[in-house]
Simulated scan of single mutants.
Amino acid sequence: MLHLLSLHYTVSEHDAEPYVAAHVAYLERHHHDGTFLVSGQTVPTSIGGAIVAHGVDRPTIERITAQDPFVTNGVAAYSITTIAPGRVHPALADLLNPGA
């Protein structure tokens, strides 16, 4: 399963600034464990950010997003879109289907 995580500020970008360092540590932790494949700010940055995650089921990704310091401090919220990949570029096939 792949999950597209859209992070939307619920306050101004300025009001979220005190939590950026903790949010970056959260991102780094989940990149390191292999759950987050890609993360970054949206353009424009005032909207929030986006993450591509994999390797966990929907309930797990919901628990993971609930632990984001932006969420626990009430400055942002996630929308989650779960995808069952039907076609995958060959460059990603081994990454997304390690047991195949």
Rank of each mutant, 00 (worst) to 15 (best):
E17S: 14
H3E: 01
N73W: 06
A22I: 09
Q41L: 11
A53C: 00
N97F: 10
Y26F: 15
N73D: 08
R63T: 05
V38L: 09
P59N: 12
G49C: 03
P98L: 02
A84E: 15
R58G: 13
E28W: 05
T81R: 13
A84H: 14
L92H: 03
T81I: 10
R58E: 15
Y26L: 08
E13F: 05
A100C: 10
L96C: 06
G40F: 06
Q67P: 07
P90S: 04
T42S: 09
P69T: 11
H23C: 04
V56H: 04
H8D: 14
V56D: 04
A21G: 12
V75K: 00
L37W: 03
L95A: 10
I61V: 15
M1P: 03
V75T: 01
H8Y: 14
T45W: 09
Y19G: 13
T35G: 02
H31E: 08
N97T: 14
A53K: 00
G49D: 07
L92S: 02
L92I: 02
R63L: 02
Q41M: 07
V71W: 06
S6V: 14
M1A: 15
P90F: 05
A66K: 03
A76G: 09
Y19P: 12
E13I: 12
L95D: 04
T82W: 02
D94F: 07
I83R: 07
I51N: 03
A100F: 04
H54L: 04
P69E: 07
V11L: 06
A77G: 09
D33E: 10
P59R: 08
